[in-house]
């Protein structure tokens, strides 16, 4: 996205935009219901009570982190290991907040953090795509986030309420390809924006770096490494370009 586009975007953030965003993310949220149900099911199998499972989905609202927490669940859990794991898996939110900041900075502080409370992979990717196509993305971010949150909680509830007859939470999910929902969504968003050679080069750098780091360093640090590499590469591209323009008479 260029500076020219940024200046042209008129920020609209009202109830109508939020509702539009809600409706836009509602179809993908159907998949989120199934994802949530799988979590509810898996949590019940780990011995979590129904109420606390639904409460966890409502309060934490972070699917991968919640599944990871279940992995170490028992009568007792290691507090710091658990919290460190949750932080590592959710560290990508930090990058999401930073990438949206140019647009969030036009909002009041209260609204800014209110909107970010429901940020998740899907609504972040879609709002970024809106900006890349020169539209306002805050309605999608907040309304879409509300949709994702609602369907995540409803799905979890369905899982704990009606899951007793079904066995094998995450294995069932994988058999039906449902663990791929978020990945496929993110890929669809990446292809939905405008791509030029510049973006492809940045993506190449980000992809290669994340692959190099994957499995070598701590869990999930590959996301941060790849993203930072892509950012630095974009800075370098610009410096080289401006040097070339200066060299011309």
């Amino acid at each position: 996205m260029s500076e020219r586009q940024n200046a042209q975007i008129r920020e609209v953030f009202d109830t109508q935009q939020v509702w539009k965003g809600f409706c836009k993310l509602a179809p993908i949220s159907m998949f989120v219901v199934v994802f949530g149900a799988a979590f509810g099911l898996a949590a019940a199998q780990q011995g979590l009570s129904d109420a606390s499972t639904v409460a966890m989905s409502a309060l934490v609202f972070a699917g991968y982190a919640q599944f990871a927490a279940l992995d170490m669940w028992g009568a007792q859990v290691p507090l710091f290991t658990l919290l460190a794991t949750v932080f590592a898996i959710n560290a990508r939110h930090l990058l999401m907040g930073a990438t949206l900041y140019p647009w969030l900075s036009s909002m009041s502080v209260r609204k800014r953090y209110g909107v970010m409370t429901v940020v998740s992979d899907a609504n972040w990717a879609m709002s970024l795509q809106h900006y890349q196509n020169g539209q306002s993305g805050l309605g999608v971010l907040f309304g879409g986030g509300l949709a994702l949150w609602l369907f995540w909680v409803v799905g979890t509830w369905l899982g704990v309420a009606f899951g007793s007859g079904i066995s094998g939470g995450s294995a069932t999910m994988e058999r039906f390809g449902l663990d791929m929902v978020v990945g496929c969504f993110l890929l669809a968003m990446a292809f939905g924006g405008e791509q030029r050679l510049r973006e492809w080069l940045i993506w190449l750098v980000a992809g290669v770096v994340s692959l190099l780091v994957w499995g070598v360093l701590e869990a999930n640090s590959y996301v941060v490494a790849g993203a930072v590499a892509g950012g630095l590469f974009n800075v370098l591209l610009h410096e080289r370009k401006s040097q070339q323009t200066e060299a011309k008479p």
């Binding site: 990058l95 992979d121 973006e199 993506w203 750098v205 994340s210 996301v223 490494a225 950012g231």
Partner: peptide, 12 residues
């Protein structure tokens, strides 16, 4: 540069 890279870094 980072915005699209987060996506790719997750997906690669």
């Amino acid at each position: 540069g980072m915005s699209g890279s987060v996506l790719i870094a997750l997906l690669a």
